[in-house]
Amino acid sequence: MFPANFGYVAARSVEEATELLAKYGEEAKLLAGGHSLIPAMKLRLASPRHLIDLGRVPGLSGIKVDGETLSIGALTVHADVASSDLARHRLPGLAEAASVIGDVQVRNRGTIGGSVAHADPAADFPVILTALDASFVLQGRFGRRTVAAPDFFLDFYTTALAPDEVLTEIRVPLPSSGSGTAYAKLPHPASGYVVVSAAALVVRDPSGRCVSAAVAIGGMGSRPQRAAATEASLHGQPLTPEVIAAAAAKASEGTDPESDLYASADYKRHIATVYARQAIETAASRK
């Protein structure tokens, strides 16, 4: 509960942060909301020699529409995503995911950028952002690049971020009219993190038939997984309860979750189908 000694710098700009990252290399860590990093430091699971605080960099937080995309600044706190009118009306599944993270204190401090950069396999944002086909804007010393979700989340706590890069923005395509999004989560009774969760984006034609569906499952492996068999079963079908249930029943196909103290692999595989069904049903019912 007592971190090792460390130095602290408040970066004034993203450029300065990337310079500092380059300067300190492995010994530095960016600090956003601190709600993953500080606990790890207190347990001495992480002992960075330098913290580079992004908290005072102007312009890194806020949610706005940019053409057909919702642009979310990396420093936007969970509570702001959860209560954003834009998110709630256009991407209710995203607001839903933000609203079930941790508790009020966590949501008031933790940032969306910190959450995805941390890439905890039990985190909420990576799951919904995978279903929504989000992409991530990474700023390095020599330029910026945009990486799509499947290429961004690589493994347990591992992303495409290079050591000197700062994540500045999360870009989420705004779904066309006639589509719905939803997020359903089984929280761990102790930590509140994801045991299993499911995120869905369902696009319908005017007759109610499914034009396309994206379903992501969390908690089943080292990173969110798309439930390809489920998506395929929905494609072109009327979104009746029977169709949804049959599709959701395939949500764990191709996953290989680990048993843990709370839930067995069997339970996780089963519960993924239940939460997938709930997420798809809710998404399909949203206008």
Partner: peptide, 22 residues
């Protein structure tokens, strides 16, 4: 929800509020 678990060899498995559910 609550249960403090030990491995067969005595290792504390739920020694944190991350896995011991109050």
């Amino acid at each position: 929800r609550e249960q403090m678990l030990y491995g067969d060899d005595g290792e504390a498995l739920t020694g944190s509020l991350m896995n011991y559910a109050v």
